[in-house]
Amino acid sequence: MTHAPFPVARLRIRTIMAVALLPVALVALVLLRTRSAAAFGEEGAFHPRALIVGGLTGPAYSTASARWSFELMQRTSAPARTRPSAVRADDPALVQEPFVWLSGRQALQPFTAQEIASLRRFFGLGGILLVDDAGVSDNGNPSPFGRSAREQIARVLPDTMPIALSSDHVLFRTFYIVRRPQGRVEGPASLDAIVRGGAIQVLFTSHDLGGALAHGATGSWEQWVTPGGEAQREYAIRLAVNIAMYTLCSNYKDDQVHAPTLMRRRAATLKP
């Protein structure tokens, strides 16, 4: 009778170690999950929840929200959810946070009555919705998603029409001074919004902001940005940061105390 050779003994040791380490790994995973759950000081953080509505099954870019939170925390003092979630429009959890964003490429199905009622409740509390057209063409033409989103939002808020935000709207200076909106594509020179009581309720971008933010697990950006390349991506990120800051600070930068400084800086940036 021969004994098992040395490689066989090594295999048993490895098995034993794997079995022993497994519970440790499981515990570590649990702890990690616990730490990443919302805790004191995180509940009020910026949370770019993806809105699931109109037949959508998920956001256009699954990594864009997390990257958005990452950029916000890197660049500012604002806290953000590192693992943003998604929420259905007809879910009561919609009213748990003040911000959601909707992105897609395909045409939306008509919103159900429950979705409309729920979204109206959300807006009534002061919620903000970003509608980001991920299917916009390189020359800025809206996709079926972009067109249908406006139609469906009009059913939710029938007594208001989107207006073009002027270049001196506070959205463009909540953190960065943004001269024009840009995303994955250069798109139109302005943003449209539904404004009520001086506050933005719905913001429409035809620039595919999510496309500029989408960041793969490999550490590289998922989408090219045209025509400006990485410089344009930087400006897109700045716009995203500004949107987040608007969500958290409202029209803080409209206060008179900021006016002299901002006017000087805007004048400096406008000089040829």
């Binding site: 500012t76 604002a78 909540t174 953190f175 001074i177 700045r238 206060d255």
Partner: peptide, 25 residues
């Protein structure tokens, strides 16, 4: 009549922009 000041950037923030591109005071 509210006079508000929010600290939007901490010492460790990497804003990746010059002062002229920031709307901060």
């Amino acid at each position: 009549d509210v006079v508000a000041f929010f600290i939007l950037r901490s010492r460790t923030s990497a804003s990746n922009a010059s002062v002229d591109d920031l709307a901060l005071i």
